[in-house]
């Protein structure tokens, strides 16, 4: 299936690098030294600050996963199958 759906390899590589860096940043901020920025016994939005911080980085990680799923992983099957001439992946 060679349509506009399939991203070019260079774009895919760029997106993959960007998502990897974003995920690593989320880990460093959410579970690494970034935690020290909010390490106070205060509340924010009705919850302990550290708890809200964890929820925020969870949302970031979910966004990264959604972008990877819709624009990277699924696309990988399409471009490769097209290149191989073997059609698209069968859905279940």
């Amino acid at each position: 299936m060679e349509d506009g759906h399939a991203m070019k390899d260079t774009s895919r590589r760029g997106l993959a690098i960007a998502l990897t860096l974003a995920f690593l940043f989320a880990m460093v901020m959410g579970t690494g030294p970034g935690v020290l920025l909010v390490n106070h016994p205060r509340s924010f939005l009705g919850l302990p600050l550290l708890y809200t911080w964890a929820i925020f980085w969870y949302v970031v990680q979910v966004m990264i996963a959604l972008v990877a799923y819709f624009w990277l992983w699924r696309d990988a099957g399409v471009t490769n199958s097209a290149a191989n001439g073997s059609g698209t992946e069968e859905d279940e």
Partner: peptide
């Protein structure tokens, strides 16, 4: 609360 941060291992 620190366990909320440990939960971020799941992703």
């Amino acid at each position: 609360v620190v366990f909320a941060l440990v939960s971020l291992n799941v992703p």
